[in-house]
């Protein structure tokens, strides 16, 4: 995307500068419209943008969690029994996480997930709008009062990942961060079974 953008920028600026360097007869209106407006304005920009739009949508489609039940289910998405469900509840200024696989357990500001398995995070808030963002695992998704949004994340390798709040939510915004612990299979089983970490 960056290379494409740079190429377009170079094209536009090149044409712009060439206008000042050009020495020749001035072109007429009709020819100008054909080249500049139809050719570059419509054909060029529309083909680039059409390609980009379609690419973006299918990329987005691939990242979707397994929602859309019934007749429409599963088009281009991964659903299966290995999906882990957790919930994230934001408040000013902390995060509280709960686990479907271990119903009685709550962790503050640390989210435990298994590595190598898709995790659906159900995100909500008790006060203002926040946003759940683990840059290395997925894009961000907002926590909206009264709504639950589900985000699919997946950590390829076990380890610790930094998580952030990404919607301004008052004076404690900067320090409103959390960590994600991705466990290997064994350690995840131990976590679910309730061993102290």
């Amino acid at each position: 995307m960056l290379a494409g953008a740079a190429a377009i920028l170079a094209l536009v600026l090149g044409l712009l500068l060439a206008a000042f360097r050009r020495r020749g007869t001035a072109s007429d209106e009709a020819a100008g419209v054909k080249v500049w407006i139809i050719g570059l304005g419509f054909v060029f920009s529309m083909s680039v943008l059409a390609a980009l739009t379609v690419y973006g949508l299918f990329a987005g489609q691939r990242l979707m969690p397994g929602a859309g039940a019934g007749v429409e289910a599963g088009v281009g998405t991964r659903v299966g029994a290995d999906v882990v469900s957790v919930s994230a509840e934001a408040r000013q200024w902390s995060w509280r996480f709960a686990y479907d696989d271990r119903p009685d357990h709550i962790t503050d500001d640390v989210l435990h997930i298994p590595a190598g398995r898709p995790v659906d995070v159900a995100i909500t808030t008790t006060d203002v709008v926040h946003s759940f963002w683990v840059p290395r695992l997925a894009g961000k998704l907002d926590a909206i009062p009264g709504h639950v949004n589900t985000l699919r994340i997946e950590a390829d390798t076990p380890g610790t990942y930094q998580g952030l709040t990404a919607e301004y939510n008052g004076p404690g915004y900067r320090a409103h961060v959390f960590t994600v612990e991705a466990h290997d299979a064994q350690s995840w089983d131990a976590f679910v079974a309730g061993d102290r970490q």
């Binding site: 536009v12 044409l15 712009l16 060439a18 206008a19 000042f20 050009r22 001035a26 072109s27 007429d28 209106e29 100008g32 419209v33 080249v35 500049w36 407006i37 570059l40 304005g41 419509f42 060029f44 920009s45 529309m46 943008l49 059409a50 980009l52 739009t53």
Partner: peptide, 21 residues
Amino acid sequence: TLVAVPTGVQVFAWIGTLWKG
């Protein structure tokens, strides 16, 4: 993305105007 098309038309029309004169 579609909104970039009329923007592009204008930008190229301006450059074309420079070429014309």
